[in-house]
Design a protein around this nucleic acid. Structure first.
Lengths: 326, 326
DNA sequence: TTGTAAGCGTTATCAA
DNA sequence: TTGATAACGCTTACAA
């Protein structure tokens, strides 16, 4: 059994209150220096550790925030989530919060998940989910403090990237390099940002008199896709991919097939997520400041917990990263 | 103010006990079906969420475990930690635990960190730290349940990879391909496993009459290192790197310099961490089942919490992954 | 079948 | 300058 405050009080021959004041460093109370030091000494001897649970129960606050992702089992190998975690952690570290990863929520009913998320272990949540996620609706209904990231949530303050501007930058870049026939490989996931990206580039290229074909990222392996592409009559000269991971798969498959990139085929991505790791080729991509966005989401969540009102949408600028694949 | 159990009891016109039994699904108590359903209905109407904090305080247990890394700021951008997180998460998910990431512990005194780690928010810890870490000593002193991963901790049950066998496999592989002069690029970090790896390969190659030079991974950039290597008289034919990240940096630098890999220079890594992400080249490496090890660490921690006694060392087998860089 | 009441380890109010 | 004591929300003997 762990040492309690009362054990210290008894051993030190003081009251619970005095012990509490000393342990919390409550300088306003005028406890005799002698008593103070004695209590500290006893606490150290007994290896005292304040019980954060009891404290939280009493003060009705908890310095822990959580992350909910609406994609079931979320792999932490996903570089996007790595950025999100890193950003949240940075803020938590600065502001003396801990960070709880909710994992026991796979394949459950929305309300059951909401109960797990909203059981007092965390003060609030950063949310990464599709708009229309049922758990998010439950959270909003029960007024759980939460802030959404990466994709807009109608019911929550949301932090999103400027997808349209990113696509505009890519379109400009490709157009200026002479590409008039572009294929856009989009994601299967139903996110508002997915729609925004494909619509934007299709529109921009069409407006200028070029052609932009939107295709789902091929289910077949990228090599087969590119082999087909190679023999087709009327092939696009540039591949614009929903994200960097798709783009890298295409780069790799292209190199394996002996294609010259970007001369035979230009490839661009979106996200800026893989740049630190990858050898051999530097992808042309749009860098989205995911880590900063996540950090800002965490900060905003903490402000929300303090009763502030937040803007419903906060949009972050994105920047083109030059490389050698387009 | 959130709905409490007592609010439900009052609104439903039952006692606290009855409400508690219903909410906990305590089937042994013979509550009238009618009462039961009524309580559930009221709870739903009021958006009741059990307070896990109060519950934990009462039952003196908490279904949360944590991770302590002795390397300060820990980022999921580190693929190793991504594996560790993923493994811990998997087990937590299966066994209805949550996973708390302590982040407010940077740059603090060991005892202060221990207080943060051991404040009742988590039942136990998975530890990733160098042997001799002062916080680990504190944790052991205060009998905080903990299990170490990746590097041996004298004071804790430890799960480690079979580094010696991994190096043996790499040595065999390189030797069988005709390499007689090998450079081993080791890490600056003082881990037992670092020592184990460099010593093992140096010994194995020497025993067979070859030469193995152990060097710290160059502080200069990998390109400069390889440029020097290229003009040296008596140059090794293979580079064996402490981990995959080092190896990939060398592969990239080599390709940039126009080296043929593996013909001009063979490069091998260790860890098996980057294989899912990287295009262009498949590294020859040793796959360590980090995720499984982390999962097992979490499982063992939970067994420890149940009062079981654990083996002091558990060693996991590693396997060679063939590729095209050696 | 349901209710009463003690207690988990803190903090905070008030009194001494 | 210190000490009693009542909460915080829940669980669980034990009583009714």
């Amino acid at each position: 059994m762990a040492t309690r405050l009362i054990d210290i009080a008894e051993k030190a021959g003081v009251s619970l209150t005095t012990a509490s004041h000393v342990m919390r460093g409550y300088t306003k109370s005028k406890i005799k220096r002698e008593t103070w030091d004695h209590v500290l000494k006893v606490a150290d001897e007994l290896g005292y550790r304040p019980n954060a649970i009891a404290r939280s129960l009493k003060i009705q606050r908890i310095n822990t925030i959580g992350l909910y992702t609406g994609y079931g089992y979320h792999s932490l190998r996903d570089p996007f989530l790595a950025e999100v975690y890193t950003g949240i952690q940075r803020v938590c570290s600065d502001l003396h919060y801990d960070f709880l990863v909710h994992v026991d929520i796979e394949g459950k009913e929305p309300n059951e998940i909401r109960l797990r998320l909203n059981d007092g272990k965390v003060a609030g949540l950063v949310v990464y989910a599709q708009s229309g996620d049922a758990v998010v609706a439950e959270l909003a209904r029960t007024r759980m403090p939460a802030v959404a990231i990466a994709d807009r949530q109608e019911l929550l303050p949301s932090l999103i990237a400027d997808d349209a501007d990113g696509m505009r930058q890519l379109a400009d870049y490709l157009w200026s390099r002479g590409h008039r026939d572009i294929a856009y490989l989009t994601s299967h996931v139903k996110l508002a940002s997915v729609e925004a990206r494909s619509e934007t580039i299709a529109r921009l290229i069409a407006e200028r008199g070029g052609r932009c074909t939107v295709l789902p990222f091929p289910q077949m392996n990228p090599g087969e896709f590119l082999a087909q592409w190679r023999v087709s009559e009327d092939r696009p000269t540039a591949l614009c991919c929903w994200n960097d991971y798709y783009a890298y798969q295409m780069v790799r498959a292209g190199l394996d097939l002996g294609l010259r990139i970007p001369d035979d085929l230009a490839i661009v991505g979106f996200d800026g997520l893989l740049d630190t790791l990858l050898p051999a080729r530097n992808l042309v991509t749009i860098r989205v400041p995911w880590e900063d966005m996540a950090a800002e989401a965490a900060k905003m969540l903490l402000r929300l917990l303090d009763g502030e009102t937040l803007p419903s949408i906060t949009t972050f600028p994105v920047t083109l990263v030059a490389g050698d694949t387009a």
